[in-house]
Amino acid sequence: MRPNWLGAYALLYLLFLYAPILLLPLFAFNDATIVAFPLRGFTTQWFGEMWENATLRRALGNSLIIAGSSAVLSTCLGIFAARASTRFRFPAKGGIMGAIMLPLVLPEIIVAMSLLVVLLSIGVTLSIVTVIVGHTLICMPYAITVLTTAFASLDPAFEEAAQDLGESKWGAFRLVILPLVMPGIISALLISFTVSLDEFIIAFFLAGNQPTLPTYIFSQLRFPASIPMIMALGTVLVLLSIVMLTIAEYFRRRGAARTGQNDRGFL
């Protein structure tokens, strides 16, 4: 009987996790200017409003540039770190890897504030570039986590076999290692992209007067009239995230299946 009881609890827990997200579409399609029960009727008005909003489009553009750049940068840096940590032993490895993974638990307000102090004191103008700098830092641990799984599942003999068959180190990396970890790289890119797209604190403090999606949403939450549109935007964003994460998960698993290792979620 115990498994059933536990299973029921787990389902309830999932419901708790998803409850707020499930509310999103309800209000996004609700024909009322205030976000409250009871629901009034069906409308797509808020989606239309969202589509025509110029500031929102600018925010979207900024967010895509930031997320794309941070994803690429953090994944590239992550490849170095993941390769080093899975393949090599070197002095102070624990400390170095710990430092690289630290942004995962360091409160973002600390990262944002300390960066802000430095950037302002050396006279850097805040822009989406400064946000990219911050986002690359916080996306890197996520990318490394995914990439480490990909690199760790590689038989070290693959690289030696390629060299044994006449390839240089670089040739071995390009022809054997890279294709085998490619699913992990794609997965890391997508996850970093999602993290950056969703990140608020660093964007809020480091973007200057440039809006990103989360900072735009935050600024609109003060205005009750904008909230139904934000609900519509939220619905789209959540759907987008789920699609991206599903693709990421697909690639991660394909990579795992290819190298024949056991499956184990994201973290």
Binding site: L77, F80, A84, I96, V118, S121, M140
Partner: peptide, 30 residues
Amino acid sequence: LDREARQGLALVAPPFAYVLLVMAAPLLVM
């Protein structure tokens, strides 16, 4: 160990340098 340590350190240098520059240095400045 020696060769391996050198290669490992060289590989880990870019991400580590980034973390030092963007996280550790600002914290020290703070």
